[in-house]
Design a protein around this nucleic acid. Sequence first.
DNA 1: GTGAACCGGGG
DNA 2: GTGTACGGTTCAC
Length: 614
Amino acid sequence: MITKKFVLLDIDYITRNQEPVVRLFGKLLGENEEGHIIVLDKSFRPYIYVVPSDPSHIADCNIHLSDLNLLSVEQVSKNDMGELKEVLKVTFKHPQDIPKLREKILNLKSVKEIREHDIPFYRRYIIDHGLFPLNIVEVQGKVLNSARSSQRPPKTGGPEKSPAPKPCIFQVEKSPTPLESSLPELKFLSFDIEVYNPRGMPQSDLDPIIMISFSSNQGFRKVLSTKNTPDSSDPNGSPLDFVEVVAHEKELLEKFVETVQSENPDVILGYNSDSFDFPYICDRAAKLGVPLKLGIDGSSPKFTRIGFSNSAMIRGRVHIDLYSNTRRYMHLAHHTLERVYLELFGEGKLDIPGDEIHIYWDEGGRRLEALFHYSLNDAVAVTQIGERMLPLSTELTRIVGQPLFDVARMSSGRLVEWYLIRKSFEQGYLVPNKPSSAQLTRREGKHVVGGYVKEPVTGLHENIVYFDFRSLYPSIIISKNISPDSLTSGEDCHISPEYGHKFLKEPVGFIPLAIGQILQDRIKIKSQMKESRDDYQISVLNNQQEALKRLANTFYGLYNHSTFRWYSLKCSESITAWGRDFLKKTMEDSEKQGFKPVYADTDGFFATYVGPMD
DNA sequence: GTGAACCGGGG
DNA sequence: GTGTACGGTTCAC
């Protein structure tokens, strides 16, 4: 058996002989290795948990299940909200059997509820195998094809470029194992398209793509264009060395594909590329008959629905639309590429008004040259923004353990949820179900009293100090053991102010345990940062601790998010009650120390220092 | 005031 | 795809 090591970039499954085959896509590591690997694993099957109506007659439940076309049913013990339960682990032949059969199973009289029936198969796979995307994975098995073919499509002119090696296809024979992780450098390629738009916003059935520009984090820069500036002796050359002229739009798209293949990036970056660039490219390529073999497996982009919008997936690579990141993490009124660039780098970006692009194009000469610069500049700006924003997403990926593609598109609440789903697996807990629409309506109707507000004392205050409580909420959850599985009606417990909700002192609840681990990891990383002398390592560690901080601070508030699987009104009310209690008590204490609070709102308060009282 | 509808960003 | 965002603002009554 051969061993291969790679960085896990992407995961999916395909169906072969009606059976699921998981594919792990990675960037190869190690001596004499380059390029990408596709690992095939045929050994994993989907499953759900079934909670019986009558635990003492769990065998009846098993009999009823045997009528369905299942692979196996097995009795297991799981912790459900602090209570140990005997449940059935029901294994199916194919992931798509689950939506087909779960209603039938739920409707069986002997079945009380079904759990973990909505975990996508690829996510289940990496959780159950202990794999983390962007970490190093080792597999043992055999190479199915290691073709290092140097064939390339017929040349259409332009500078010579070495083709990327074809991916190594590998059959797993032993379960993949994660290795000690360090983050290998990822190659990313940004791109941006320009479209001829005499009627305002372009329409993909009418308006051609005229330019595509590229920028990588390894210095590659290029603009492909279907028009040249006239002041060049060579009709195919250009006075600008980064411009490559092609004959027509079809060739432009073919060159686009070739460039992605030869640059062979791990990550593809765009700005609004989920809803503009990729849909537009796909429409034009379909119209002109250009195969968009952008994926590692030669596949074309696929669009997956996330909410009401689509996301473009390039299989085996990671396509990230930085617009979603800037909207999530930068609090600006607008998130145009120009505005975001200004905010991050403090300088303006070369800009051409969108509706004038066709004018610059038609006019040619200096105007066209400006358009070349503008287009390249956009791609370069995307690379720079990526270099600034991605480290947080890559570390969140390695902590939460979901693919970078998903992590880059998830709210921090969802990140926490997937972090907890993995923790549930590790600790033998059953994951709570997503709320039904009826539960959602009920939850949305309930409102929790917010934080304490002290109206500001008017006037100009000097010697202002701010007492910040935001970071205190995680500590409240831990110190009061606020967790749905800790709720009790017994004795010897933490009792929340105002509401009197009771929480067990022991054992540590599922959520407080998770937050505790996050905070401990963060402390450990911070001390490693102090010891390290390696700048790259320090920056990675810093991103890790930032990611952990983000996760820890997200927990507060989640108990009151209607879609959160661990939603709990009692937990939510108790946090704010203890929060108000702490805030008021600390304000009182501060007055004893010579401070005078002038304004307070939920997370903290402002005070002036007036000197010690006599 | 309140709930529904719309919008973002891209050329 | 073991699927269906989100939060802020404006609109219509």
